[in-house]
Design a protein around this nucleic acid. Structure first.
Lengths: 227, 227
DNA sequence: GGAAGTATGTTGCAGCTGCAACGGTATGGC
DNA sequence: GCCATACCGTTGCAGCTGCAACATACTTCC
């Protein structure tokens, strides 16, 4: 099973193991179990608190009209979602959360973190510090998404997405956590047009594809597509 | 002058006025004065700390190759930049910071915020809490940028950008903080193509434009362009 | 006042993308 | 085994966009 232990998550990093239970009680969390494909959170739903993925795989995506979606991130055990909404004082979520696989999610209220009481102050300090780090790296990740979506062509988007994910050694295979349809949503482009772009890159000897696995045979030629 | 007082900034919200000086000393800030058009921070530069705009107007933009840019945000007095990079433990900045006008920027080190000493703990707690709120709202802002850049057509991008900024009462004029060129960079599109799209929207009676000021005469028709 | 530089609107054109449709394959339920 | 569903690649076509070039203001700086 891919169940994560809380102390391995970024949120609880640095919390002594014997204090975990205190933290959990303090945050008043409750666990929700979702089946695969289940919608965890619809955009506009009243906020359920901050979610921490315990097991399974979860997607965060912006839903546009007519079923079109722009994927924001894939969440794995240990990842958080909803923290920006909760801390930013919005009353409803702007993104949809969907379970890719059956999963367990721990929802907790951020209010307890800022309880003015002096109780467990040192634990709350660690949690707040961790939350800062998590939000900072999420901001950086979103910045990279801007870099990708800012590209003008599909091959440019592919280059902006694949190049930072490829191993340093050129010609090495690496996997991505997306199906073709998912990749198209991530790049906010049309699936068939993406398929065509990949075919051309293959034809020109720039990369090789096998399902979710890629091998950049000519990274420089791919980088030439960056605007 | 548009100089901001520190206690009006989001970072120092809730700090008693007579403690401000303590905070400033604690954070070891130093002020940098920049002329208009000056580059404050090039992507890849070693980090100078977190920046707080005291006066003037500053741009944050991702620079692609060949001078193309995707604007990320306009920063006004009281706004922060670099906090995600500093807290996310990156050693260099991924975005370029440019002064639009002459400006004064206060750089400070985030390290003092997490000093393990007990000194001024209550002040540091407030600052950390404020930083969390700032990062959360920046995350939400970036999410909106994804919504905009995820649109497939220029008119869609315009709709995603203008509709949330228009006053509730249709037919009201409102301004945006961008020139045409700047708006094109914000939408990550070509300036002349943007100009063409705006002309067509004007021709079809959907909006009226006067420089940086817009008036949506038919918001519903504009919303129809959202993918 | 003049010159250089910058911002803006227009237009023609090549090219890329979105869309729809089709066929093939894999997966799952009955 | 069979059907339904989903995923993926291919293709034709209309349409939108990027790009280059040009003309017109407007600003700035001598």
């Amino acid at each position: 099973m891919d169940e994560i232990r809380l102390e391995e998550s970024a949120l609880f990093r640095g919390i002594p193991e014997d204090r975990l239970e205190i933290c959990c009680n303090m945050l008043k969390g409750r666990i929700r179990i979702c089946r695969g494909q289940e919608t965890v959170q619809r955009p506009g739903d009243p906020l359920q608190g901050i979610g921490l993925v315990l097991s399974g795989e979860v997607e965060a995506a912006r839903e546009h009209l007519q079923g079109r979606r722009t994927m924001v991130a894939v969440l794995r055990p240990g990842d958080l979602f909803g923290e920006a909404v909760a801390l930013g004082m919005l009353e409803s979520a702007p993104v949809a959360i969907t379970a890719r696989t059956s999963c367990r999610i721990w929802f907790f209220s951020p209010a307890a973190l800022f309880d003015p009481s002096r109780e467990h102050l040192e634990l709350r300090t660690i949690l707040q510090r961790n939350l800062l780090t998590i939000l900072a790296s999420k901001t950086l990740m979103l910045g990279e998404r801007l870099e990708i979506l800012g590209q003008k062509t599909i091959k440019g988007k592919l280059a902006a997405y694949l190049l930072p994910r490829a191993p340093g050694q050129p010609g090495t295979w690496f996997g991505i956590p997306h199906s073709r349809t998912g990749l198209a949503e991530l790049l906010s482009t049309d699936r068939s047009a993406l398929s065509r772009a990949l075919s051309e890159l293959k034809r020109d000897g720039i990369l090789v594809v096998d399902g979710n696995r890629f091998c950049l045979t000519d990274p420089d030629k791919l980088a030439a597509w960056l605007a």
